[in-house]
Amino acid sequence: MALLGLGANLGDRASAIAEAVRRIDELPETTVAVVSHLYESEPWGEPGQPPYANAVAAVATALRADQLLEECQRIESELGRVREGARFGPRTIDIDILLFDDEEWESPQLTIPHPRLREREFVVVPLLEVVPDVTLPDGSKLTRESATLGRITGVIGPVPGFERLTPPEPSRGEGVEFVAAEPAAIGEPGREPAESVPDAAGEWVAIETFQRVWTENPVEALLHKGLLEDAGIPVMFHPPRAPYLPLVETVRLLVPKEREADALRVLQEAKAAGRLLESLDDD
């Protein structure tokens, strides 16, 4: 899973970030799983800039980190990003790779984790909204307390067009525990038979289960739902209010009974291609 930071402080900020996320979702073997709210933040670096809009997107991809960087820079250029001038000056769009699984990169072109990740509130807060219990490659936890630059001044709202991938509440910095149950391996021996759900409308069966705490988003559940929808397979969560649950609760991913084999095939193929996320609590 890659965690991308997006920002803009020129022109229509929200539209620029939305278009960047849309183009990222169209990259080969890449799926945008969760997108944070848009936050407005104080500019820093060059003085006299307008305020920024910032967001973080969780992305599942089979691309290497350096390949993803090239694609993000191409998208920046297509959206009018000019790299000449002040390093921390105003910009139409900025896309940074913050984290990439548990990998560490150090080169003139790419450093992962992002070298200023911990100190920027406009990065830390939306990142914790998307993955509240994120662990850095060195095993340390990311917290809001270390972020003293780029203060957030307000919440703009969901990124336009990605409301269904946005958690219900913007992050306020609380330390909320994230629990992601490891679903049974798809198509492997020992997988329990699909469970019928009589209180769901029609003949639907559960093919996976997830668990989470409070109002944070189970990234795997949304990713798998998006993959099935892209394949034209109807899918829903049960209970209906899932995946946004008020307390610890199990949520089931349902598909029509007659599409069960197709759904399992789609997820198995995605897993083989490296598009499925590893469990976030698999330490």
Rank of each mutant, 00 (worst) to 15 (best):
L117M: 11
L117P: 09
L117V: 09
L117Y: 02
L117Q: 08
R118E: 05
E119F: 04
E119M: 10
R120M: 03
E121K: 03
E121D: 04
E121A: 14
E121Q: 15
F122T: 07
F122N: 06
F122V: 08
V123K: 01
V123H: 00
V124C: 07
V124R: 08
V125N: 01
V125H: 00
P126Q: 11
P126N: 11
L127K: 04
L127T: 11
L128K: 10
L128V: 08
E129K: 09
E129I: 11
V130H: 02
V131W: 12
V131Q: 11
V131N: 01
P132E: 02
P132V: 01
P132F: 01
D133R: 13
D133V: 03
D133E: 15
V134E: 09
T135V: 14
T135I: 13
T135M: 13
L136N: 11
P137G: 13
P137E: 15
D138M: 08
D138V: 07
D138L: 06
D138Y: 02
G139F: 08
G139S: 12
G139D: 10
G139T: 12
S140K: 12
S140N: 12
S140E: 14
S140F: 04
S140V: 06
K141F: 08
K141M: 09
L142T: 13
L142M: 14
T143D: 11
R144Q: 09
R144S: 03
E145R: 13
E145V: 05
E145M: 03
S146V: 06
A147P: 04
A147T: 02
A147I: 03
A147C: 02
T148G: 00
T148N: 01
T148Y: 00
L149S: 06
L149D: 03
G150D: 04
R151Y: 00
R151K: 15
R151G: 06
I152Q: 05
T153H: 01
T153W: 00
T153F: 00
T153G: 07
G154C: 02
G154L: 07
V155C: 10
V155Q: 08
